[in-house]
């Protein structure tokens, strides 16, 4: 789901950079407002590298296999670090394995990075969910939704971009059915990515819960704002 060089018109590539730049700026501003912005860098850099390498892990869906995108997971774990992480990961994928491109880096980053930030917001639902259900269910459900939103939204943007920017001459009916067909084909993939993200989230919760800590959450100011777990600790 990476758009390579040479496919999109230059105007669309420029528009991609025009969208990605303010989002990157906003993410960096959020990061720089942290008490120590450098603390999250190793985790973000590592997940960037893993984002690159994990694309080589294929999930068998007989008779074919699909590879992971993991932008929803990056959003869930990294919060606002996810956008720069995806930007860098895509840069490596473009220059090292030719997956994506340099001129389309802005488009690709916006396509995968903005859904990742939304996935982070979705993943935060686990806190209110944990008040109604048990923690494991809340984390798994929020992970599933984050993974699904991350890939689903990116797939919709990808398909719309590819079909609408193809050279003129494609039959309108073919174009329409291609958009619907490809979008429908990505629904099971989004569910699969959601399920995989939920499994990973539950794995982290069991083995390394600190990876799921939300560093962006505002510190509770009143006793009533504390979650049950925090209140128990106090």
């Amino acid at each position: 789901m990476h758009i390579p060089d040479g496919i999109l018109p230059a105007q669309v590539c420029a528009a991609g950079y025009a969208i990605a730049t303010p989002v990157a700026w906003y993410s960096l501003r959020k990061i720089n407002r942290q008490p120590d912005p450098t603390v999250g860098i190793p985790k973000a850099a590592l997940l960037t590298a893993t984002f690159f390498v994990a694309s080589s892990i294929h999930i068998p869906v007989p008779p074919v296999s699909v590879h992971l995108v993991l932008n929803g997971l990056l959003g869930a774990i990294l919060g606002y670090y996810a956008f720069p992480a995806i930007l860098i990961g895509l840069f490596f994928q473009a220059v090292i394995i030719g997956h994506g491109g340099l001129t389309t880096l802005g488009v690709d980053a916006a396509m995968m990075g903005i859904p990742a930030i939304l996935a982070y917001q979705v993943f935060r639902l686990r806190h209110p969910l944990a008040k109604r259900f048990n923690r494991r269910f809340a984390d798994g459900m929020a992970g599933f939704l984050a993974g699904m939103v991350g890939l689903g939204l990116a797939a919709v943007i990808f398909m719309t971009l590819i079909i609408t920017t193809l050279p003129p001459g494609l039959d309108a009916a073919t174009e329409k059915s291609a958009i619907y067909g490809l979008s429908l084909a990505h629904v099971p993939l989004a569910v699969l990515e959601g399920a995989f993200t939920a499994m990973l989230v539950l794995f982290f919760q069991r083995v390394k819960p600190e990876l799921l800590e939300d560093h962006w959450q505002k510190k509770p100011s009143k006793a009533s704002d504390l979650t049950t777990e925090q209140a128990e600790r106090v």
């Binding site: 990061i31 860098i41 850099a45 960037t48 590298a49 390498v53 930007l87 860098i88 490596f92 090292i96």
Partner: peptide, 19 residues
């Protein structure tokens, strides 16, 4: 930005580790 430069260099370093 320095943050992006640091992340890029560290990520490049980790690519080998993770692979």
């Amino acid at each position: 930005p320095s943050l992006l430069a640091d992340m890029t260099l560290l990520s490049y370093r980790y690519l080998y580790e993770v692979t």
